[in-house]
Design a protein around this nucleic acid. Sequence first.
DNA 1: ACTAATGATTAACA
DNA 2: TGTTAATCATTAGT
Length: 236
Amino acid sequence: MRLDNMLLAEGVAGPERGRASAAAAAIVAAAGGSPDNENLEHADYREKLAQIRQIYHAELEKYEQACSEFTGHVMNLLREQSRTRPISPKEIERMVEIIHRKFIAIQMQLKQSTCEAVMILRSRFLDARRKRRNFSKQATEILNEYFYSHLANPYPSEEAKEELSKQCSITVAQVANWFGNKRIRYKKNIAKFQEEANLYTMRTAVDAAGVSSQTNQANSPATPNSALCYTPDGSL
DNA sequence: ACTAATGATTAACA
DNA sequence: TGTTAATCATTAGT
């Protein structure tokens, strides 16, 4: 009977729709759901859960139909036999009981396999590694901006990480991951990141210039002094 | 289909 | 405990 409760809680069993979304929400809450792609993941999860639910109900119905059909056959057989030998109603009852028990056992198997499917779906849903999503363009912009403007010491403090996480609408752990990856990958192949580095250092330089010189905008020659390219290995 | 980019995980380390 | 380095698994560009 634990299986019944489980299926009910997941919204697979039970009366039609309405519970599935609640179950999905509960799972997200348990996982510390990311507010970013929440809706998308939800839809995916709900869709797959609905599939499982549909299969479950179809199978259940099939079993019930087969069960009643089979009991009908057996009853007919017994009735025919009752002409040649006396059959007590108790015997008939016992026969029906046996058949029912058999079919309930089969239903149990169905419930178990359905439970398994739900569990697998849940574990996949909860495993962030399997369903990785790239950060938004803005988020990577912000992160890169910080990284290249602190290239000498690209280790944001806890507070800085929190600030970045808020700006990018990702978790602090994700910010830490990003910086870890960025540092190692930058160090590993600086040449590959030259273009990006130049882009961001130039951008911040332009921003700074824009803030300091608001009055005269006649300097369109676009700051030709972009020679601060920071090439530690001497390339370029 | 193949490959590069990328976010997450893990062990080793200081 | 936070970081590095290697690696995994998915996404995106060709």
